[in-house]
Design a protein around this nucleic acid. Structure first.
Lengths: 250, 250
DNA sequence: TAGATTGTTAATCGATTAACAATC
DNA sequence: TAGATTGTTAATCGATTAACAATC
């Protein structure tokens, strides 16, 4: 059975676990805050508390990056800020386009957290021609017609989609066609992309639904086992036919 | 060693895995779309494709809810919509408050995806008195002073925080103090809450940073092992002192 | 009956965590 | 040296997935 270590054809260059990558920004934020307060060093215990994670997990996470700590002392804040920034690719400039200038697109354009982390808004784009030229967060809205040109001229590799669901796939296709290889999707749709393109999804409604699930559990605790009773109940006839299917799908 | 099944003191009523709960909204969305097109039944294969997951995973997920399918046939769309909605707690009304009426708060207030899923905006709240009374998405902004009263009067158990980072913890404390037990946090801070309160976090900047990490990997593939070289390098002196720590933290 | 598809098993994979030897 | 804290091991836990018996 072997130890199951490096039996893969080394497809991914190093192999930092995805769960670790997702926590690096949290550590970076906590470290940045310490840095601003001129704290020189921090222990895994302190930093873990600030980031809201377990200290063993933090040390394991850092061990994937290298040995950046000093036993008996802790981690040098500035040094770690730099190393994590470098690992995340934040020491370089990332031009980003935001497509869809509704409320959410505008909110993102005005969000300060981007610029400070290497992300630069190359352009704001909308399909509505009457919006063209309007200033949002100091930038003129450009028409969707120019999308390919903008992506090409600015070497944009990251696109943010804040369009309605119906337009998202087409926008995505055009972004990818123009050379974008990472998509942050706020539209409530599953996007189909070719291999080599990353999509991350932020779905406001889904987050609330997950909260509702847990909230319901809390409320149900008073009654306890009522909900645990065996199911197989009928729906409240939301549709024309509440019965179990009798026909096969095409 | 046992099978590791029900050795817990039955703290959580049934035990649907967290990963499954997080996917139920995806299934629900795909099913709702099928329902709108009057598709009567769907196979795990088809539904999985629509939701963007593996069909084995989908069947496993559904098995936690009960046996709602028919072998050789598939799942009844309407019936499954109902069952998942019920499981997620969406068959009841959830009054929600949104605190912080900046761009993001306004975007959320205008977001249509809430009302259709049992979430009702009970109030929009902001600390800026000059905003009080202003209509956003047809609702008047209320002053933060009224927060406790609003939560109490409307039996609000879910709060959405869209304030700046600096105000988030205080708002969170007040929401929790007033009776809120689920928080959706958009502010870039770690919130501290008592046991029994759920916090979910949406962080726009973190999502972009994760994308940047993968984007960097793609770009680096051309050079390949350059980045794999052993680290232990010095930072570009972002701070006053780039050296490794010599003193202990307090 | 023959074909289709679920529900479940079992293997595998990946993530978390406590514990502690190494070492500053 | 004594105390502190990292980096790593190993155990455990949870999630994913292929495969297939059950059954419509």
């Amino acid at each position: 059975m072997a130890t199951g270590r490096n039996h893969r054809p080394a497809t991914r260059s190093r192999g930092i676990p995805e769960a670790t990558v997702a926590r690096l920004p949290l550590y970076l934020r906590a470290l940045t805050s310490l840095s601003e307060r001129s704290v020189p060093t921090v222990s895994s215990e302190e930093l873990a508390a600030a980031a809201g994670v377990n200290s063993a997990k933090l040390r394991k996470d850092f061990s994937y990056l290298g040995s950046y700590g000093t036993r008996g002392v802790g981690y040098d804040v500035e040094y770690l800020v730099y190393q994590i920034s470098r690992e995340l690719g934040l020491t370089q400039d990332w031009p980003v386009v935001i497509v869809g200038m509704g409320n959410l697109g505008a909110a993102l354009a005005n969000y300060g957290g981007f610029a400070s982390r290497g992300f630069r808004i190359a352009a704001l784009i909308d399909a509505d021609a009457s919006l063209a030229g309007k200033l949002i967060a100091g930038l003129p809205v450009r028409h969707a017609e120019e999308l390919e040109e903008i992506v090409d001229d600015n070497q944009v590799s990251i696109g943010v989609i804040t369009t309605p669901a119906g337009a998202a796939q087409e926008v995505c296709d055009r972004l990818v066609g123009a050379g974008v290889t990472s998509i942050l999707n706020f539209a409530p749709t599953v996007l189909t992309v070719p291999d080599g393109v990353d999509v991350r999804k932020v779905d406001l409604s889904i987050e609330l639904q997950i909260l509702a699930f847990h909230e319901q559990r809390k409320a149900g605790e008073e009654f306890d086992d009522t909900v645990t009773a065996p199911p197989k109940r009928q729906p409240t006839s939301t549709g024309p036919d509440g019965d179990l299917p009798a026909v096969m799908p095409a």
